[in-house]
Each structure stands twice: as structure tokens, then as C-alpha cells.
Design a protein around this nucleic acid. Structure first.
Lengths: 243, 243
DNA sequence: CGGTTATTTGACCGACTTCAACTGCAGTGG
DNA sequence: CCACTGCAGTTGAAGTCGGTCAAATAACCG
């Protein structure tokens, strides 16, 4: 758990150099780490929105559902991510968080987030950066789902994930642990699982990726990015790891 | 112009009651009002992202484009909206703003936004609310495009627009000025203009709306909302005008 | 092992796209 | 006043991408 918090602190100080006091304050805010089993909800629609959430380990999805069960994933959350910073200002949760793999998260109470603005402006700025980047990613997803083909969209999603995974050091020479099921990919892209399967096989047979056994290998990263028209600018990662 | 700024100030104080000093500071920050002709760009990809933008009059679209010209609208901006608050933290614009109708906008320099956090915390909070709500809307659009049918999505888009228009007093008893072309609707929903046309006619012939001559009339608002599964919670409008 | 869940395959279907032509309308200039 | 132009909207026919249904593997797990 301690090590997990360090990933979070490291990510927070990626853009703004934090003082020891700021780092200490940051780690002190993070309370009540809890782990959830794969597939289980971490927060539901209508829940009071009174904490931000830090992902310490595992993957989560932010989702919305229609009354008849159609489901859409709005964001994939990875270790180090700080989400729901808007809890400092908005009142009610309008979406859901659920664990994709076994995941452990901690929370920061709403009062702490609000307080940090006055006490630790640079921490506050780091929080806002996280929130604004998640918003930028959501906008890119609108483009991805609205205007890219299934194949392009899938390629783009994979590019985004590996890029973000690289940034927090979750890669191993082009090979990544990949806990997402095809159902998750479908819900990210607004597709059926069956079509996701066909698209994945296209990517496999064109030699761009290997995807099996909960593991993703990117064989031709350049080609994959070209297919997806992936340009990482929208991720606003300008730190040392920017690649 | 003066009157337009008042709309903005009114919207800013919808959730947080602002003091006279705060209102004055707010209006003092808003500089350089400029008007753009329908269809012309207001800000382009790669532009330095050093100002937030206030919409004083007219409609804008936030857009992204793929290299081959496919275009997606990410947000419709209406009078009173404050956008690009993230300019206080992020550096580079990754999307485009363009005028839908003739529109006049003003800007707030990045330095002012950053400064306001310390000097006028409640204004800062109001700015953040705007940014977070735009993010919430973007997430709803992901659902709209990814999982709703064309008909449902169109209905939902219209519900959102009239709801936001009501909130800033742009309605006239169920009748709204409607400068969007079918091309804009298509780019909002990830559809072809031709299909938009057919969907609009479905809505017309089922008696839910009238849409002609740059004017929208909502005849059966309840039915339209039911068709769209529209629940305004994600707009986080909790003020007096919440309806 | 057996039972469950995830992935894969095939056949068919439908929502939406593409292409092409036509209508209506506002502006423009003769 | 009326042709001419250009653009938004409309209509129809044909095609495609992706969905649905059903069933067969294949992986996971107690």
C-alpha cells in the first residue's frame, strides 16, 4: 500500500515540483485505502459525491448505463490517477465507478480538497491538472466514438492506454498486463463484443499487436499509432516520461 | 455588450452568491470582446492556450477534426458559458472553437484565472464549477454517441440544449432560436447529415418538435425527454431556474 | 473434473452511409 | 422583374459497417 501511494505522489509531482511539506500533506490526505474485487462497484449513481478517489492499484472504469442495460465506459482509470476532483464543487454523482481488475483505491475527503487551495496552491494546481486532463481525454473519446471506425477507434484506445501505462511505468518492453475483457473494450468504444472480437483479430492478423492471456504486446507501435491517428498531445503529459 | 456581460455575471452567481466586489472583479477580468462571423474559427489547434473564453452572444462549437476531414463537435457553447478554464493549468490547445452563428466572445487572461484563486476564492469556485460541468456534459455525450440510437441521441441533444437555453433565459414559451444547421447536428452525434435529416423528420412527424426557419419549437417536452432518457442531473444546475 | 465465463465463428439482419439527383430559398446582378 | 448562383434541406436507391442470434470452442476456477 505504501508503495502504491508513492506512485500517486510521483505522478502528482510530474509537472509541478512538490516540496517535502507538500508531499507529506498530500500523503496525509489520502485515507481509507480499500480494495474491491474485479467487477464490483466502487461508487454508484446517486451516491453522495463527497470524496475524490485515488487509484493505488488495479484498473477501474467510470461508467454510465441506460435504463435498458446498455452500458458505456467513460474513462479507464489506472494506478496513480486522481479522479472526481470535482467533488469539491459538485454535489451529486452522475456516473459509476467499478473495478475492472482487483483494485485498491483511497479517498480524499471533499473538505481536504477544498482546503488545499488556500494552504497548498501547488498541490491544488496538481489536482486541477488531473481533472482537466481527464476532461481532455473524454473529449478525445467523443471523437473516437463519433467519427473513427471501429478499427481506428480500437487502435486509438490501445495507443492511449499504453501511453498512459508507460507514463506510470507499467510497461515491460512493449508488453503490458491487460485485465480488460472484450466486453470492456466494447463498452469503451460503443461496439458489440462480437465486433470487438473481429476488430481485435484484424489487429492481430496484421501483426500490430498480440493480445491474449490478459496480456497485450504492441509489436508495431508506429503503425498502430498511424492507423489510429494517435497524437498524444491531448494527454498533456509534458514531464520527463513524455516519450 | 454590457448587457451580454450581465448574462455572464448572472450565470456565475447562480450557485454561489457573489458579493459586489466579486462581481466587479469578475467583470473587470473580461476583456477584449470580439465578434466572429458564422462559420469562422475563433481558436485553432496549436494556438497558445493562455485565455479562458466567455461567450457573450451567439453560439460556438468546440470541435476536433481527423486528417481526412471527418469532424466531431465536442460541445455546444451558449451565451454565458465560460470555457477553457483549464488554460490556467494546461499549455496547448488540442481542439478548435468556431462560431456557429455570429458570435461575440471575450477572454480572461490565464494570469487572471490563476490569480483569482487566492484573491477571490468564491469566484474561483464558480470558474471551476463551469469547467467541471462542461466535463460532465462531455461524458454524457460519450454515452449519447456510443450507446444511444440516432433518434434517441438527437432527442437527447435537443433536450440538453433547450434545458441550457432555459437556464439563461433564451426561451420563448417552448420556442427557441435555432442557428444550428443539420451539418452541426450530424457532427454532434457522429452521424451523416442525410441521416440527421431523416431522424429530424421522424421527430417532426411524431409531433414532438417543429424545426424550421432557424427556429425550434418543442411541442411535447415530456415525450421528448422520455424518448431520450434525458435526466438533467448531469448538468448540475441546482439554482432557481432548475425547472 | 464439472460448471461457469470469455472468446470465437458463421449466417443473417438492420441502422446508418454513400452517391446522386432534385427542391426550395435567399442573394445578386443583369 | 427574372435568370443565375449557391447553399441547406430533402428524397431515393444501393452498399457497408457493425449488430443480433445461435452455437461451438476455449480458458478459468473451485
Amino acid at each position: 500500500m505504501r508503495g502504491s501511494s508513492e506512485i500517486f505522489a510521483a505522478k502528482m509531482s510530474l509537472h509541478v515540483e512538490l516540496s517535502a511539506a507538500e508531499k507529506a500533506a498530500l500523503l496525509a490526505m489520502v485515507t481509507r485505502p480499500q480494495t474491491s474485487k474485479a467487477g464490483s462497484p466502487v461508487a454508484a449513481v446517486g451516491d453522495p459525491l463527497d470524496t475524490a478517489t485515488v487509484v493505488l492499484d488495479g484498473l477501474l472504469a467510470r461508467t454510465k448505463q441506460l435504463p435498458d442495460g446498455r452500458r458505456q465506459i467513460l474513462a479507464i482509470l489506472i494506478p496513480g490517477d486522481l479522479v472526481d476532483v470535482h467533488a469539491s464543487v459538485l454535489r451529486q454523482r452522475d456516473d459509476q465507478l467499478e473495478a475492472i481488475s482487483t483494485a485498491t483505491v483511497a479517498v480524499i475527503p471533499q473538505s481536504r480538497i477544498a482546503g488545499v487551495a488556500a494552504e497548498f496552491p501547488r498541490l491544488h494546481e496538481a489536482f486541477l491538472r488531473e481533472a482537466f486532463i481527464e476532461a481532455a481525454i473524454a473529449r478525445e473519446w467523443v471523437l473516437n466514438i463519433g467519427r473513427r471506425t471501429a478499427l481506428e477507434g480500437m487502435a486509438h484506445l490501445l495507443c492511449e492506454l499504453i501511453h498512459r501505462w508507460d507514463a506510470v511505468g507499467l510497461s515491460d518492453g512493449g508488453k503490458y498486463p491487460f485485465p480488460l475483457k472484450q466486453q470492456h473494450l466494447a463498452d469503451c468504444l460503443g461496439l458489440s463484443t462480437i465486433h470487438v472480437n473481429r476488430v481485435v483479430q484484424q489487429l492481430r492478423s496484421s501483426g500490430l499487436i498480440e493480445l491474449e492471456r490478459r496480456s497485450l504486446s504492441v509489436l508495431k507501435r508506429q503503425d498502430l499509432q498511424r492507423l489510429a491517428d494517435f497524437t498524444p498531445g491531448y494527454l498533456h503529459v509534458t514531464g520527463a516520461k513524455a516519450a
